[in-house]
Amino acid sequence: MPQPRFLVVLDADSTLLRNEVIELIADEAGRGAEVAAATEAAMRGEVDFATSLRTRVAALEGVPLEAFERVRARVEPTPGAAEFLAGVHARGGVAGVVSGGFHEVLDHVAPPLGVDRWRANRLQVADGRLTGVVDGPIVDAATKAATLEEWSAQLGVPPTRTIAVGDGANDLVMMRAAGLGVAFNAKPTVRAQANIVVGPVDLRQLLPLLP
């Protein structure tokens, strides 16, 4: 692989994807509205992300693994996602995703879109059903920033040539660590702190920002 010119790291839910995947899983437990309200509060920065995620994942207890086929069928990429990622590659960049969501979904949807690398949470399973517990360390705001820095070091891309794109409060640390922090489809607190705010929910709007 030739030396990448730059690195773009995106959030998944409500950024690369139109959905909040945890809400789709919660629908399978009949608790979609409850989890949606908790997700909104977390994205606005009103509650600690890791604490909120543990509470929301607890609401998923008992969801069978076969439900993930229905969940994945409902996941929609954000308009322009594939074109944006193709543009990253055409300009010699690498596209990564780091998400407070879940590998159980991202592992299926990221490759067809052209994502080069990704990191997310995993859900603990016992007897073919979710236990309501996150399996392993939680991907939180600090993890997102550390992942951007880790990937840029691995790829030999200077921090000044990294771009972080996100919508929620848990993306802010990553956006500050990047050379350029882009608020996309973002909550007010994120728009207020980003280097650039992109309003239209179409990832092709980001193409002019690529180096």
Rank of each mutant, 00 (worst) to 15 (best):
G136R: 07
V94L: 07
T78D: 10
P64F: 11
A141T: 02
G132I: 10
A164S: 06
L130H: 07
V63Q: 12
A177D: 03
G96Y: 00
L106D: 03
N121K: 09
G100L: 03
P211Q: 04
G166M: 09
D202S: 14
I25W: 04
M175G: 10
G101P: 11
R74P: 07
R74W: 08
D171Y: 06
A169C: 08
A50D: 12
T162P: 06
A192I: 06
A164K: 04
G32M: 14
A58M: 03
V21M: 08
D202P: 14
A81Q: 09
A33F: 09
L85H: 03
A38H: 03
T55Q: 13
F84Y: 08
A178P: 10
A145S: 13
T15I: 08
L17P: 02
V173D: 07
R54T: 10
Q124C: 07
R204I: 07
G128E: 05
F68A: 08
A38N: 00
V125I: 15
P211G: 09
T131R: 06
T39C: 04
T15M: 04
S99I: 02
G179W: 09
V9P: 01
L130A: 07
V21F: 11
L7N: 03
D167Q: 11
A177N: 06
G114D: 04
G199M: 02
V133A: 13
F6R: 01
A58T: 02
R74D: 13
L17I: 02
R44D: 02
A36W: 10
G101S: 15
V109T: 12
G199L: 11
R44Q: 07
S14Q: 05
